[in-house]
C-alpha cells in the first residue's frame, strides 16, 4: 500500500515538474505578452496543483494535507486575478515603452 502511494507521489510530482517546465518554456518562447500570460497562469498553476496532489499521501497528518489544499486554492485565486491584472495593464499600453 505504502509502495503504491509512493508511486502515486512520484508520478504526480513528476507531472508537476513537467508542467513547470512547460510553463517556463512557454514564458520564454511564446511570441507576445498576452500569450505568455497563458503559459504562466495555466501551466504553473497545474504544476503546483499536481505537486500538491502528489504530496497529499506523504502528509504527516490530515491538518497539513488540508493546509496544502488551502495553499493550492489560494494560488488558483491569485493566478486567476494576477493574470487578468497583468493582461489589463499590458493592453492599456503599460506594457509598451
Amino acid at each position: 500500500m505504502s509502495l503504491l502511494l509512493d508511486l502515486f507521489t512520484i508520478v504526480a510530482v513528476s507531472g508537476g515538474l513537467f508542467f513547470f517546465l512547460a510553463g517556463t518554456v512557454g514564458l520564454l518562447r511564446f511570441p507576445d505578452t498576452l500569450t505568455r500570460l497563458h503559459a504562466l497562469t495555466k501551466a504553473d498553476n497545474l504544476g503546483l496543483g499536481l505537486i500538491v496532489l502528489g504530496l497529499l499521501p506523504q502528509c504527516p497528518d490530515i491538518v497539513s494535507a488540508l493546509k496544502l489544499v488551502a495553499i493550492w486554492a489560494l494560488v488558483q485565486l491569485g493566478g486567476a486575478t494576477a493574470s487578468q491584472l497583468i493582461a489589463e495593464f499590458a493592453r492599456r499600453g503599460g506594457g509598451e515603452r
Binding site: 489560494l74 485565486l77 486575478t81 487578468q84 491584472l85 489589463e88 492599456r92
Partner: peptide
Amino acid sequence: AVPSGTLTFLARVLPPI
C-alpha cells in the same frame, strides 16, 4: 488609475482570508 473589476473582486474575496 483605471478601475478594474478584477482588482475589486480580489479585494472583496481575499482580505477576510
